[in-house]
Design a protein around this nucleic acid. Structure first.
Length: 498
RNA sequence: GCGGCUGUGGUGUAGUGGCAGCACGAGAGCCUUCCAAGCUCUUAGCCCGGGUUCAAAUCCCGGCAGCCGCACCA
């Protein structure tokens, strides 16, 4: 579905819209989720929590977004995220200004050198673009991390975390010691990260405040293939585009391990679980792939990287980065904090390795919508609806009085309260024609609608309407809670009712 | 960040120097026994700041934002 359609729907139906939009000077890359959008977004995170954290018995934390400078010295972000950059005016490629100067003059450039001093050196030493020999523009400091000063006197330099996993590495030792679990253990977190993206674009796909839901699996590298639960997924086929194949192959987990396409059973298992999660979110298998990153593409700390990508209107889009981070992070923080972050298991002392599944919440949200939008022409009318899975829908059922008189509206209100009291998320609407009300809830993906009419007053039945097919069934009110519950967990299909 | 294009009610648009209009939506009312029906009324807008001009949505400058391309995305 064209992204204009999605954005139009988002703005019209309170899904998402720019942050501080009533102020003209608001910066790009920050988004608000409106009353409908936040419900869907929360459902995505809740579903991730249920499908991956609960079923896999992971630990979840909620960490601080503000972390001290020392954390990012140890993690390597200050070094690699903070650069004087110069752009070629001809071919527009970026270069690190200090490295260019160092190469030319053959000695290190002082860290404190200002961009103006570097500009001067570049013109004095006649330095040109190493790629195309074009003229270089002015040196600018690129700081991909957002910094802030803490304390009333602004005395402590801190940063907003550029990835949520750092909290997990910082908390690892405490959770390992108190958690009464041996390796492998998984720790997860959902929350915001912050990056000064150069060019935020495509709404939620490139943000400066980005929602992440990350899972870090800590394990003994010698036991990467000792993983009992692997048998559950051994026959399950991953959509892998490995470096050696360069096209998407359906490869069983067993085969991926035996042919050494992935580093071990533990990794294949988690790739499978992740792919299954996205299938349950309504993403078609043909439109997903794990693309293995080349050495140039992957982060320096990563031994093996798979980007989970989905084919959207805008092209293949990365939703999740899966990185084998080895012991890089714990080692770095052990050095930085001077704390021992090793574990003792099997009468050996070692630093655990980490495999991470770093998913973008907002990218997932966008992808779910992109894949769910349906447009149908029915006679003169165009029908637009969201084919959302019930778990992700903003409401599970809508309740409408057919007309607003003869006690039909009060009866509808009773049904609404009845379903609410049974734990269903309901939306009530009595304004406008019945068709218009159906259309409104179709557009935000509500899977079912209940209408109260004159027959209801006589026999306590209602009509239950399914969103996608618009088919209707006559149901007794007392039977609704159990029936809706069965529908919500796919225990019964709508067409099989009665 | 660079280059090109663009910015008018909630959404989509007309208006190219002289009273800011239309459609859809939304709200109130009437009507209404199942898929955006009808009638009446109402609501709401020129991205922000400066400049030119008797007069600026319109022309000029700057900013912000968006789209396309390039680049970037530890």
């Amino acid at each position: 579905m064209p992204k204009e359609e999605l954005q139009n729907l988002a703005f019209r139906r309170m899904l998402f819209y720019p942050a501080a939009e009533i102020y003209a000077g608001a910066p790009a890359g920050f988004w608000e989720f409106g009353p409908v959008g936040v419900r869907i977004r929360n459902n995505i995170v809740a579903f991730w929590r249920r499908e991956l954290l609960e079923k896999e018995r992971l630990f979840e934390i909620h960490g601080s977004v503000v972390l001290p400078r020392e954390v990012f010295e140890a993690s390597g972000h200050l070094k690699s995220f903070n650069d004087p950059i110069v752009q070629c005016t001809k071919c527009h490629s970026f270069h690190k200004a200090n490295s260019l100067i160092e190469e030319k003059i053959g000695k290190p450039v002082a860290e404190a050198m200002s961009p103006k001093e570097m500009d001067l050196l570049i013109s004095q030493e006649k330095i040109f673009c190493p790629k195309c020999k074009g003229a270089l523009g002015n040196v600018k400091l690129f700081n991909m991390m957002m910094s802030l000063r803490i304390g009333a006197t602004q005395s402590q330099e801190c940063f907003l975390r550029p990835e949520t996993c750092q909290n997990i590495f910082l908390d690892f030792q405490r959770i390992y010691r108190s958690g009464r679990e041996n390796l492998p253990i998984g720790i997860a977190q959902a929350g915001s990260s912050f990056r000064n993206e150069i060019a935020p674009k495509q709404t939620l796909l490139r943000e400066r405040e980005l929602g992440q839901m990350e899972i870090e699996i800590f394990f003994n590298p010698e036991r990467i293939n000792e993983f009992e639960k692997f048998e559950e997924v051994a026959g399950y086929k991953l959509r892998l585009q490995s470096l050696s194949s360069n096209k998407v192959d359906d490869v069983s987990c067993k085969e991926a391990v035996s042919k050494k396409i992935v580093s071990g059973k533990l990794i294949a298992y988690w790739l499978a679980r992740l792919q299954q999660f996205y299938e349950k979110c309504g993403i078609a298998k043909e439109k997903m792939r794990f693309r293995q990153l080349t050495d140039d593409e992957k982060a320096f700390y990563s031994k093996e990287s798979w980007d989970f990508e989905v084919l959207l209107d805008v092209g293949w889009t990365e939703l999740v980065a899966c990185n084998y981070r080895t012991d890089y992070d714990l080692k770095g923080h052990a050095q930085g904090s001077k704390k021992d972050l090793s574990v003792k298991e099997d009468s050996k002392e070692f630093i655990p390795h980490v495999f991470e599944l770093s998913a973008g919440i907002d990218r997932t949200f966008y992808a779910v919508l992109d894949q769910a939008i349906r447009k149908e022409t029915r006679g003169k009318e165009e029908r637009l609806y969201l084919d959302l899975r019930p778990q992700l829908a903003p409401y599970f059922v809508a309740v409408f009085p057919l007309v607003n008189k003869d006690n039909i509206d009060t009866k509808a209100e009773e049904v609404f309260q009845y379903l609410e009291s049974h734990g269903f998320f309901c939306v009530y609407d009595e304004k406008g024609s019945i068709g218009r009300r159906y259309a409104r809830v179709d557009e935000i993906g509500v899977p079912y609608a209940i209408t109260i009419d004159y027959d209801t007053l006589n026999d306590d039945t209602i009509t239950l309407r399914e969103r996608n097919t618009m088919a209707q069934k006559r149901i007794k009110i007392y039977a609704l809670p159990e029936l809706l519950w069965k529908l919500s967990i796919s225990k019964i299909r709508f067409e099989d009712i009665k």
